[in-house]
Design a protein around this nucleic acid. Structure first.
Ligand code: FES
Ligand code: FES
Lengths: 141, 141
DNA sequence: TATATACCCGAGTAAAATAGTCAAGATTAA
DNA sequence: TTAATCTTGACTATTTTACTCGGGTATATA
């Protein structure tokens, strides 16, 4: 049970972005250097973030990315779902109808994993990107 | 973020065991058939469970496994740790001292993942194997 | 307009983790 | 003895992950 680097990097990069985009678009190269994440990998990630309206882009020289909404309105669950970091604890082949192994009934552990998934998702739904941004910046405003 | 089948199977198999071991040792073959888990794979899993004193074994004909302690005393966290199903959300190379990428300071997301890990482990610490066992059996006693 | 900066996008690949298999043996009840 | 059952270590196939690459397009600015 672990996070993939895609999810971790996405949150990291967005937290970085939130810290630096007050002065304008932030290029990926800066984030790459500051956070030590491969530029190519970041490109992949930000493409998805853009498609899900989490960031906006400006092309060309002086361009980069900015957050689409305020950091206090951005839930971690949105970020994760944008980059396909899913919480997947159950094993049902067909999620809605049949249980594990194609049997019609649910297995003995099904409800447990369901609860677990709910428990984890609650965490991601409560946490906002702003919870990560350095206190200094938010206090100044 | 997902559970491995080792963790899922371990809990499944132990729940099955808890349901059937009142009459004596339960052979893996029965569990394998009832739960649809490969016998070979179960062998691997139960070896670990035995090493961690979660089950006891009896060899030979009529043998099998029984729970080492009561189902209400057995936390899911114990089961998971026995089969190496770890909750691992952070990326620190050296867990105790240095942060990600070998930098001395913690990265911007470190505390977040720490909280997440705690949140998940709380769930596993609260849940007991007995929470999975069918109500019928427990009501009879 | 030339040039550098930056995003855009689809493929491809190497390494790691996972899931599952197998063979040969030891112990015990009947 | 024989069949049932656990014991152990090693092996392999598959899947997932993490990352790389190449060849674009758009835009600012000198
Ligand atoms: S987890 Fe859904 S039926 Fe087993
Ligand atoms: S997760 Fe520990 S320093 Fe980044």
């Amino acid at each position: 049970m672990k996070l993939t680097s895609k999810g971790r990097y996405a949150v990291m990069a967005l937290a970085d972005l939130a810290n630096f985009n007050k002065t304008g678009p932030v290029p990926l190269r800066d984030i790459s250097i500051r956070q030590g994440i491969s530029l190519f990998y970041l490109e992949q990630i930000f493409l998805k973030l853009k498609k899900h309206n989490i960031v906006q882009s400006t092309r060309g020289s002086g361009g980069g990315y900015v957050l689409f909404k305020n950091a206090d309105d951005l839930k971690l669950s949105e970020i994760f779902s944008a980059v396909d970091e899913k919480v997947k604890t159950i094993n049902c082949k067909r999620e809605s109808k049949k249980g594990c192994n194609g049997k019609a009934s649910k297995c003995i552990t099904h409800n447990l994993w369901d609860e677990l998934e709910l428990h984890i998702n609650t965490f991601f739904n409560q946490k906002k990107l702003s919870d990560l941004v350095s206190k200094k910046d938010t206090q100044i405003r």
